[in-house]
Nucleic acid binder design. Structure first.
Ligand SMILES: [Mn+2]
Ligand SMILES: [Mn+2]
Ligand SMILES: [Zn+2]
Ligand SMILES: [Zn+2]
Lengths: 143, 143
DNA sequence: GAGCGAATGCAAATGATTCTTATTTAGGTC
DNA sequence: GACCTAAATAAGAATCATTTGCATTCGCTC
């Protein structure tokens, strides 16, 4: 709860720095993002937000969340799926996805080592900048 | 070329086993899949196919490719992006994506080791079944 | 060649996202 | 506090990928 408040204050502070105006719509979106699940869709945020702010337009949520990505307050969650998921966790981290229910957990790595099979991998002289580990399996609930 | 023929024959053989009927539309799709780039969208296949078979319907390509996933002749490429990509390579492998041009290369690994930071990763008693390594960077062309 | 279920074409439906436009408003300036 | 302007919003149309319903056609088996 105090952590949520911290998150909210951080969002408000950063958005001021970026020159974003503090509209009530934006405040509702910020608060929901600071309270709810890390890996959300626009619609999940919209559904919650409209309870408190019924005249809110979905387009506003779309615009705000994309803008937050542009200004570095959110990231896109790079998973395939029907609708875009956003990540409020800006730390470098990876993900576990439950193949039954779709729940997404954050995974932090102490280390990763991998060795390419050069004979079959044809990267040419591509330069690898980052790696993203996607773990899949069954979550505790679905076991 | 002989390799493409092999691929095509394999597709035809497998589809017979699965009880799929050999329609001319399906044959065109199979042949294109056996000839072209591994990581294709439905539309890329459709655009090629309609050259040879102008009355082909996009819905037919959608239906066939999804059905091929169901019967194990194709897999979904688990990347975020505007439209679904399919992988004709059924071997276990990983991918490199160029962040400039979007090209996708196959990557084969000899080994992977990773160590979770248990204090921050909360997998509960989830069971991890597979891992997928996504390399990102700049391909040779875009360097 | 007949019969049947699978496959197809086409057009309408869907769902997520983006865009357009007229209107409102936050936040700075006097 | 009134005023200004650029930013933000609501509402709805537009777009794009994908799916679905339905009438018709066609591979395949006997
Ligand atoms: Mn995350
Ligand atoms: Mn591949
Ligand atoms: Zn689960
Ligand atoms: Zn490239």
């Amino acid at each position: 709860m105090t952590e949520n408040n911290d998150n909210l204050e951080k969002l408000v502070g950063l958005s001021k720095e970026k020159g974003l105006k503090l509209t009530p719509q934006r405040m509702v979106i910020f608060r929901i993002l600071s309270e709810c699940n890390q890996h959300v869709t626009v619609d999940e945020v919209y559904q919650r937000a409209r309870v408190e702010y019924p005249m809110l337009s979905p387009a506003t949520v779309y615009r705000n969340m994309e803008q937050m990505v542009d200004t570095g307050l959110l990231t896109h969650l790079e998973l395939s799926g029907t609708s875009m998921r956003y990540d409020t966790n800006l730390d470098e981290h990876h993900h576990f996805v439950c193949t039954k229910c779709g729940v997404v957990f954050d995974v932090y790595l102490d280390k990763v080592n991998y060795k390419l099979d050069e004979s079959r991998s044809h990267l040419g002289n591509a330069k690898v900048n980052s790696l993203d580990l996607h773990l899949q399996g069954t979550c505790g609930e679905c076991l």
